[in-house]
C-alpha cells in the first residue's frame, strides 16, 4: 500500500517536473502543440430550444461522437439582452483559446441597437456554415398564388400591411427592400413572438409576413399559408417551386449568419485548429442532416472570408435601417 502510494507520488513529481520543463521557455509553442488539452467553455447566447441552441448542441454532439475534441465540452446557455449577455461574456474572455460561441442574426443586430461594448469585428472568426433565410408568405385562402399576384395586389391596394419579428431585425429589412425594389408601399407591424405573427396573418390582420422556413413549413404543408418568395441563394430543397429572390431580380437580399467565433485576440493556433476541425464537422452526415431538418442553406466561408461577410451584412443592415428611420 505504502509503496504504491510512494511510486504514485514519485511518478507525479516526475511528471510535474517534465511538464514544468516543457512549459518554461517555449510556453506558447507547447500550448499550440497541445491544443486542445483543456475543457472547452461553449457559450450559447440564447435559451434552450432556439435555433442557436439547436445548432450549438448539434455541433457539440458531432465533436464528441467523432472524438474530434479530446476533452470535455461544457455547454452553457447564457441568455439575456438579445445575445448581449452571452457574447459579452465571450468578449470578456479576450485572448482565451478555450472559449467559443455560435452566432446568429442578433450577433449583427444587437450591437446596432444597444451599446453592447462589442461588435462582430471584435471577435476572432472561425467560419460560416450556413445562412438562415426567410420565406415571404400570404394566407393560404388568399387569391394571391405567386409573387407577381402579390406585387399587383400590393400596387392596387397602395399600402399593404406586413409583419415580422422586431424592428431592428432582418424581417423589417427584407420587407423594406422588397417593397422598394418592387415599387409598393408597406406598413410594417412588429411582433415579439413568432406565434403572434402567424395568427395575425391567419386572422386576416396582415396581408403578408416573413418567417424562417423551419417554423413555418408546417403551415405551408397544410395549405394554411402560401409561400411567394425565398430569400436564399438557392431554392429550398423542401419547397423547390418557390422562386428565390435572386431569380426574381432582387439582388443582395440579406441573410443571417450561422457561424462560429472565438474571443477577441484568440491565439492563432486555436483559430487554425478550429477551422481544420470544423472542415471535418461540416462533412459529416449528421451535419448534413441537421441542415436539411432545419432548412438551412449551406454557405461555407472560413476565417477572414467569414469576417468580411459579417462586415458586409452588418453594413447593409445599418444602411437600410437608417434609410427607413429605424435607427
Amino acid at each position: 500500500m505504502r509503496t504504491k502510494l510512494f511510486s504514485a507520488l514519485a511518478a507525479l513529481t516526475v511528471a510535474a517536473a517534465l511538464a514544468g520543463c516543457g512549459s518554461s521557455g517555449t510556453s506558447d509553442e507547447s500550448a499550440a502543440e497541445d491544443y486542445p488539452s483543456e475543457e472547452l467553455d461553449w457559450t450559447i447566447a440564447f435559451g434552450p430550444g432556439g435555433g442557436n441552441d439547436i445548432m450549438a448542441r448539434t455541433m457539440v454532439d458531432i465533436l464528441q461522437k467523432q472524438d474530434l475534441y479530446p476533452e470535455n465540452i461544457k455547454v452553457e446557455n447564457k441568455e439575456g439582452g438579445s445575445g448581449a449577455t452571452g457574447w459579452g461574456y465571450l468578449f470578456s474572455n479576450k485572448g482565451e483559446a478555450y472559449n467559443i460561441s455560435t452566432t446568429s442574426g442578433s450577433f449583427i443586430t444587437t450591437p446596432l441597437q444597444a451599446d453592447t461594448g462589442w461588435t462582430h469585428e471584435d471577435f476572432t472568426p472561425v467560419g460560416l456554415f450556413a445562412t438562415d433565410d426567410a420565406l415571404v408568405l400570404v394566407p393560404g385562402d388568399s387569391p394571391i398564388k405567386n409573387w407577381e399576384d402579390w406585387v399587383e395586389f400590393a400596387k392596387d391596394k397602395g399600402t399593404v400591411t406586413v409583419g415580422g419579428i422586431g424592428t431592428v431585425n432582418v424581417d423589417f429589412i427584407l420587407h423594406a427592400l422588397l417593397a422598394e425594389a418592387a415599387g409598393y408601399k408597406i406598413d410594417y407591424v412588429p411582433y415579439n413572438e413568432e406565434g403572434q405573427v402567424q395568427t395575425s396573418l391567419l386572422s386576416g390582420a396582415l396581408d403578408a409576413m416573413v418567417s424562417n422556413p423551419g417554423s413555418i413549413l408546417g403551415q405551408v404543408e397544410a395549405g394554411k399559408m402560401t409561400p411567394l418568395l425565398f430569400t436564399g441563394k438557392e431554392p429550398l430543397p423542401t419547397l423547390p417551386d418557390v422562386p428565390t429572390g435572386e431569380s426574381l431580380g432582387f439582388k443582395d437580399l440579406p441573410s443571417l449568419p450561422r457561424g462560429l467565433i472565438l474571443p477577441p485576440d484568440a491565439p492563432k493556433y486555436a483559430q487554425e485548429w478550429w477551422i481544420d476541425t470544423m472542415k471535418k464537422v461540416v462533412e459529416t452526415d449528421e451535419w448534413k442532416q441537421y441542415l436539411k431538418d432545419n432548412n438551412l442553406i449551406e454557405d461555407v466561408r472560413w476565417g477572414d472570408d467569414f469576417a468580411s461577410y459579417l462586415t458586409e451584412t452588418a453594413d447593409g443592415f445599418e444602411a437600410t435601417l437608417k434609410e427607413q428611420g429605424a435607427l
Binding site: 434552450p48 430550444g49 413572438e193 413568432e194 406565434g195 417554423s215 408546417g218 431538418d293
Partner: peptide
C-alpha cells in the same frame, strides 16, 4: 394551438416548440 396549429401561445409553449424541432418533429397543422 401548439398541437393543432403549431403555434406557440405562451413563453412556455414556445420552449416546447423548440423541443419539437430538437426532437425532429415539424410543428404545424399536420
Amino acid at each position: 394551438p401548439l398541437l393543432t396549429l403549431g403555434i406557440p401561445g405562451s413563453a412556455s409553449t414556445a420552449v416546447l416548440i423548440g423541443g419539437f424541432l430538437m426532437w425532429g418533429l415539424q410543428p404545424g397543422p399536420l
